[in-house]
Design a protein around this nucleic acid. Structure first.
Ligand SMILES: [Mn+2]
Ligand SMILES: [Mn+2]
Ligand SMILES: [Zn+2]
Ligand SMILES: [Zn+2]
Lengths: 143, 143
DNA sequence: AACCAACTGAAATTGAGTTTCAAAAACTAG
DNA sequence: CTAGTTTTTGAAACTCAATTTCAGTTGGTT
């Protein structure tokens, strides 16, 4: 799954244009394995591309989400975060409430039990959010 | 666990006062089994108590959270919701993305697996959020 | 090259959440 | 009870991320 390709396809499908800014934002976003907020990605971009505006970064991240190459995350800190989506590698998150560190985890048995729960209530699941909040090993050490 | 008592204790501990408004808000909040946002609870209260202000409702819900008789929920609709906390009855949520219906579920096997995951990363969990988004049975019916 | 729809970025707007402040209410001590 | 002190209240102002607006620019098509 080539994410750049999926994005181009999406632009074509919707009659949208392939601009210099969108390409730069896409590359920067995909190169990182971070969980960027709009503001953070904007700051990173500003170093090399000071003329790209915040609104454009915001709109482009929304486009990424629309065409399925990114997902929105919300860890309750008042900032929406975005991460590149790997369709073959779903994961959930451990979030350190002290230093902000984000650890990714995969647990197929939980995914399976989720499906069972949904079935129990005749509920058809489209997405889910599963996050554990607490202290990472560094932050639980007695300094 | 008498939640009104816990709240009074909290007020005393912090040198706060026992006001008419706080009592009314507490009763209305506990009587409901809803997942109210501040605005929603404010609207409900306004019917019988039109002089209670939004800011007071907001501050009081924060107090409830502080003393542990309520929890904040965020289902990604841009409104923070609050629900009375029953210390002996933890649950997670199914959220219908069409009609907004909220179904509560309990699955001890998932809770157990969560603990295993945390251990795997030497992570000490303080809280977690686990929500499944999709269609409730009514909303997945072909009208 | 010319046209036009889409795009950009600065600035304005929105909306939930939070804070401010002067008047009111709850305590406390006498 | 009364006076004095502290906290609370509610309307309005403020904050801040997210979103929209709009005039000038750019991309893509003929
Ligand atoms: Mn991740
Ligand atoms: Mn609930
Ligand atoms: Zn940490
Ligand atoms: Zn529904």
């Amino acid at each position: 799954m080539n994410r750049a390709l999926v994005f181009n396809q999406h632009l074509r499908n919707k009659g949208l244009k392939n601009t210099r800014q969108r390409l730069i934002i896409l590359e920067t976003f995909l190169d990182s394995s971070f969980h960027y907020s709009t503001e953070e990605l904007y700051q990173v971009l500003r170093k090399d591309h000071p003329r790209i505006g915040y609104a454009t970064v915001h709109r482009t991240l929304k486009l990424f989400t629309e065409c399925g190459i990114a997902v929105e995350l919300n860890f309750g800190d008042g900032q929406t975060r975005f991460e590149p989506l790997y369709s073959d590698h779903h994961h959930d998150h451990l979030v350190c409430t002290r230093c902000g560190k984000i650890i990714e985890f995969v647990e197929p048995r939980i995914e399976q039990l989720q499906r069972e729960v949904a079935e129990r209530y005749d509920f058809s699941v489209e997405s889910h959010r599963h996050e554990l909040y607490g202290r990472c090993i560094k932050c639980s050490q007695p300094s």
